[in-house]
Design a protein around this nucleic acid. Structure first.
Lengths: 96, 96, 96, 96
DNA sequence: GTGGTCTAGACCACG
DNA sequence: GTGGTCTAGACCACG
């Protein structure tokens, strides 16, 4: 997937955050399973490792994922989070 | 190099534009290579960052350079540009 | 000030966090005033900008400072935080 | 270069140690310069990271190299080391 | 001239 | 072979 690097867009890490968040909410990455490694995400999105980690730092802050050295990054159990549900709903509606 | 900041002169950014343009046209900065960083140019010409960026903005507009965040500023492939040729000719004549 | 970069020590950013935290708690950097810039801290401690920012990110998370683009980093109003008071006390006692 | 992984051979890390040591002593990797990265050595010799690091740990112990996080691995100034001289001599004799 | 973002790429600590 | 730390240094956005 290609992110927009033109000026006027959100920063790359923020765009990546949005993509990963929606994949988690949509179950592309399932609870308790591992996310693709930082290396894979670098390649898939064509960004540097720092950018990947910046997006992940925010996902940790949102309590969506957790990192484990030597193991990988796992998707946490979802709690009902109304704000996220609302955003997801918006996204779905926009696609129609 | 010292730019003229007395009144009656062209604005600093415009003088800087001229210098950078001529260096590109003369091959001091070669096609495909990186320009000195904004920091270096600030020091070399004793001007502020805003001035450097103002000059560079015009060079981008003239399609002489291109900026890439985290990478640097590169000199674009020259296409025949009659206006520039004319200016270059003037410059050469002045030196004689 | 020199940080310890030998293996077996805490990471540099963590050591830097401790120093900055204690300076804030001791009033070396006062409430509402600006911290030294990232550039200054890089020089004072001989670390890279990323390391300085990593320490600062944690200080933001602890609600001790706040960053403002184009302005600088300011020390927030202290609230009584018992955990920090306790650590400070320990530090003072250790020095005796 | 291919290392021997058949039984009866020295361990991989030890073979790798020998190769790297000889390259340093022969000046393939020169004093004060950086060694190829761990990643490069993994690929060149078709071994795992652990093996590369095991060989390097021994080179550090022999005071032939020094690692610096974020910088790389550099070749130290050689002091006269009789044991190494002896091994080097053996190597030269074997080639004849 | 500050903090914000980004690149490329190294070694470290843990499995 | 993952995530953790670190370096050096670029341009960007805001004053």
């Amino acid at each position: 997937m290609k992110l927009q690097s033109q000026s006027g867009e959100k920063p790359l890490w923020s765009q990546l955050y949005d993509v990963l968040e929606s994949r988690i909410l949509n179950g592309v990455y399932k609870e308790g399973e591992v996310l693709p490694s930082e290396m894979s995400l670098m390649e898939e999105f064509g960004v540097s490792r720092v950018t990947v980690r910046q997006a992940m730092d925010k996902l940790i802050h949102s309590k969506l994922i957790s990192r484990k050295r030597g193991k990988g990054t796992i998707v946490l159990k979802k709690k009902v989070q109304w704000k996220l549900c609302f955003n997801l709903l918006l996204m779905v509606l926009k696609k129609k």
